[in-house]
Measured scan of single mutants.
Amino acid sequence: DIIVVALYDYEAIHHEDLSFQKGDQMVVLEESGEWWKARSLATRKEGYIPSNYVARVDS
């Protein structure tokens, strides 16, 4: 799995977006363009995230 960590807070604009806080970790489910589908490890919610707001966690 690709794990990313939030670099900034993000408040969902559309209902399919995923809100998150700086430091939150998410599993990337699908990478396509600038918006990635991800699942929050904390809340288990899924939605689209702006890929420029996150960084990959080296395992």
Rank of each mutant, 00 (worst) to 15 (best):
N52D: 10
R44I: 07
D58F: 11
G33N: 06
R44C: 15
A12D: 02
L7F: 03
L7T: 03
D58G: 12
H14R: 14
A42M: 10
H15D: 15
D58Q: 11
S32A: 11
Y48G: 03
E46N: 04
D24Y: 02
V54K: 02
Q25T: 12
S40E: 07
E11N: 11
D17L: 09
E30P: 03
W35T: 08
D17P: 02
H15W: 11
A55G: 07
S40F: 06
R39Q: 10
Q21R: 15
E11I: 14
D9K: 06
P50D: 06
K45E: 13
I49G: 00
E34R: 12
S19L: 02
Y10E: 00
D1Y: 15
S51L: 06
I49M: 02
Y48V: 05
A12I: 02
L29I: 11
P50N: 10
P50K: 07
D1T: 13
Y53R: 08
I49R: 00
A38V: 15
L18E: 00
G47N: 01
E30W: 10
V27I: 13
S51G: 08
S51W: 10
I3H: 06
I3D: 01
I13D: 08
N52Y: 10
E30K: 08
D9S: 09
E16T: 14
S32N: 14
R44W: 13
V4C: 09
K22D: 01
E11Q: 13
E34K: 11
A55M: 14
W35S: 07
A42Q: 11
A12R: 05
K37S: 06
E16P: 04
D9F: 03
T43Q: 05
G23E: 03
D24L: 02
R44K: 14
F20W: 00
F20I: 03
S59W: 12
I3V: 10
D9R: 06
S51H: 09
S59H: 11
V4T: 01
I3K: 06
G23S: 03
L29K: 04
E46Y: 07
H15L: 14
N52M: 10
L18D: 00
L41E: 06
P50Q: 07
K37V: 09
S32C: 15
D24M: 05
E34N: 13
L18G: 00
K45H: 09
D24V: 03
E34H: 14
A6D: 00
D58K: 09
R39M: 14
A12L: 02
I13L: 12
V4M: 05
L7K: 05
S59V: 13
A55E: 12
M26R: 01
E34A: 13
Q21L: 12
D24I: 02
Q25D: 02
Q21E: 08
K22S: 07
V5Y: 10
D24C: 04
V28S: 01
E34Q: 12
I2W: 10
V57Y: 10
V4I: 09
V27C: 09
W36A: 05
H14W: 10
A38Q: 01
D58V: 12
W35N: 07
L18S: 00
R44G: 15
G23T: 03
V27H: 07
L29S: 05
K45S: 08
P50H: 08
Y48R: 12
A55N: 07
Q21G: 07
E11Y: 11
L41K: 06
H15R: 11
E16M: 12
P50W: 07
K45W: 05
V4S: 01
Q25I: 15
D1R: 12
A55F: 08
I2P: 07
K37R: 14
K45Q: 12
V57D: 07
Y53E: 01
A38T: 04
K45P: 00
D24E: 15
K37F: 15
S59Y: 12
K22T: 08
I13P: 07
G47A: 01
H15M: 12
S40T: 07
S19Y: 04
V54E: 02
Q25Y: 15
E31D: 15
A55D: 07
S40K: 10
G23P: 00
A55W: 08
P50R: 06
D17R: 09
G23N: 05
S59M: 14
S32G: 14
E16F: 14
S59A: 13
T43P: 02
D24S: 05
R39W: 10
K22M: 08
S40M: 15
D17M: 15
P50A: 03
Y8N: 06
E11F: 11
I49P: 01
I49Q: 01
H14S: 13
D9V: 04
K45I: 08
A42L: 11
R44E: 11
N52H: 12
K22N: 04
S51T: 06
E31I: 14
I13K: 13
L18A: 00
E11W: 10
Y48H: 05
K45M: 11
F20P: 00
I13E: 11
E11K: 13
R39T: 07
E11D: 12
L29R: 05
W35V: 08
T43H: 05
E16H: 15
L18Q: 01
L7R: 04
E11R: 10
D1N: 13
V27R: 07
L18P: 01
V57P: 06
Q25W: 15
Y53N: 03
Y8K: 11
Y48D: 03
V27A: 09
V27M: 10
E34C: 14
R56Y: 13
A55Q: 13
A6W: 01
R39V: 11
K45A: 10
D1H: 14
R44A: 14
H15A: 14
T43I: 04
D1W: 15
D9Y: 04
V28K: 02
L41S: 06
Y10N: 02
E31Q: 15
A12G: 11
L7Y: 03
D58M: 11
S51C: 11
V5I: 13
I2Y: 15
G33S: 06
K22W: 04
V54M: 05
K22E: 08
V54R: 00
H14T: 10
I2C: 11
P50G: 03
L7A: 02
D58P: 12
E46S: 09
V5K: 05
S40A: 10
H15F: 12
E30N: 11
L7V: 06
Y53D: 01
A42E: 12
E46G: 03
L18V: 03
M26Q: 00
E34D: 13
R56K: 13
V4G: 00
A38S: 04
L29H: 04
G47V: 05
